[in-house]
Amino acid sequence: MTPQDAPDSRWSDLDRPPLNATALRRALLRPDALWTALDVVTATGSTNSDLAAKADALGEGAVLVAEEQTAGRGRLDRRWSAPARSGLFFSVLLKPGETVPMERWGWLPLLTGVAVATGLARAAGVDTALKWPNDLLVTVEGQERKAGGILAERAGTDGVVVGIGLNVTLRADELPVPGAGSLALAGAVSTDRDTLLRAVLRSLEHWYGTWRAAAGDPAGSGLQEAYAAGCATLGRSVRAELPGGRALTGEAVAVDGDGRLVLATAEGVQRPVAAGDIVHLRPAAP
């Protein structure tokens, strides 16, 4: 077997080459950087689970990337699957406790959404919209499609693991569900995963540093304003499917200081929603 034919060869799939871990470390791991370690594995069940299991032994800023996830999870333990090397599947370990009160940690998935959208706008030329609380949307043939998601979980004694799954080169016949999309289908100018990962991690480092310097204040850090500007949920009629089988319908009018989605109901009451599935009931305004 020649090196080019080896399963782990960088050239075994010319359309979907593996990530270059050495180059990524060289670009991202600096003495003054947030990122302190970066590992790329061929396959794993869940990068979130793997990183969370080692959270107490690792310093802040550890990054774990998988070329393929066999048991990737979204909110409510929903499965997230995609062909090997077709996307970015990674988790980061953050430990904001020394500078940010725990009651503000709920902003971390929203912060990550802003960081991902900002990084992709620069590196892929794709307008990525945010669906509250943790979905990443792209436009494919005039339709909103989910191209990624974010899952934040407490880890160890003082950590939070934030996982990001992003469809990069998935073709239409590879999409797991009809409402899914990918950067390639959205017309990305670049689908080089090394470039995209560097851009997203640098953007996340910037937003996390700004938020942490403001002691987690979403207004003072500019995070609340940035999230509202990029949120596709605001200004739309939505149905919030709440825990316990309840539902609430109204217009999404704001994201409050606690990161909750505020709905204005038909009764003229504003109701904050802290957790739940959000269904967009009408298309976004042109």
Rank of each mutant, 00 (worst) to 15 (best):
P3T: 10
A6T: 05
A6K: 02
A6S: 09
R10A: 15
D13G: 03
L14P: 07
L14D: 13
D15T: 10
D15M: 08
L19M: 11
A21W: 00
A23Q: 14
R26A: 14
R30T: 13
P31A: 06
W35C: 03
D39W: 02
V40L: 02
V41Q: 04
T42Q: 14
G45C: 05
S46D: 07
N48I: 07
L51M: 05
L51G: 01
A53G: 09
A55P: 06
A57I: 06
A57C: 08
G61K: 01
A62H: 11
A62M: 02
E67P: 02
T70W: 10
G74F: 06
D77W: 11
S81T: 14
R85W: 04
S86W: 08
G87I: 04
G87L: 04
G87P: 06
G87T: 07
F90H: 10
S91T: 08
V92N: 03
L94E: 02
P96I: 00
G97M: 05
T99V: 12
M102G: 10
R104W: 02
R104F: 00
W105N: 02
G106R: 05
W107I: 00
W107Q: 00
P109K: 02
L110A: 06
L110P: 00
A115D: 04
V116T: 07
A117K: 12
R122Q: 15
R122M: 08
A124R: 07
G125Q: 13
T128Q: 10
T128Y: 10
W132M: 00
D135I: 03
D135E: 15
L136Y: 14
L137M: 14
T139W: 11
E141K: 15
Q143D: 14
I150K: 00
A155H: 03
G159C: 08
G165W: 02
V168P: 09
L170D: 08
A172K: 14
E174I: 07
L175W: 11
V177K: 13
A184L: 15
A188S: 05
S190Q: 08
S190P: 03
D192C: 07
D192E: 14
D194Q: 07
L196V: 11
L197P: 02
A199V: 10
A199D: 11
S203D: 12
L204Y: 15
E205Q: 14
Y208S: 04
Y208C: 06
T210H: 08
T210W: 03
R212K: 12
R212C: 12
R212Y: 05
A214N: 06
G216H: 00
D217P: 04
P218E: 01
L223R: 01
Y227F: 15
Y227V: 03
A229I: 04
G230M: 12
G230L: 15
C231L: 07
T233D: 06
G235S: 10
R236E: 08
V238E: 01
A240E: 12
L242W: 03
G244W: 12
G244H: 13
E251H: 10
E251R: 15
A252G: 01
V253L: 03
V253S: 00
V255L: 01
G257F: 01
G257S: 09
L263N: 03
A274Y: 02
A275S: 13
D277Y: 04
I278T: 10
V279Y: 09
H280S: 09
P283A: 10
A285V: 11
P286M: 08
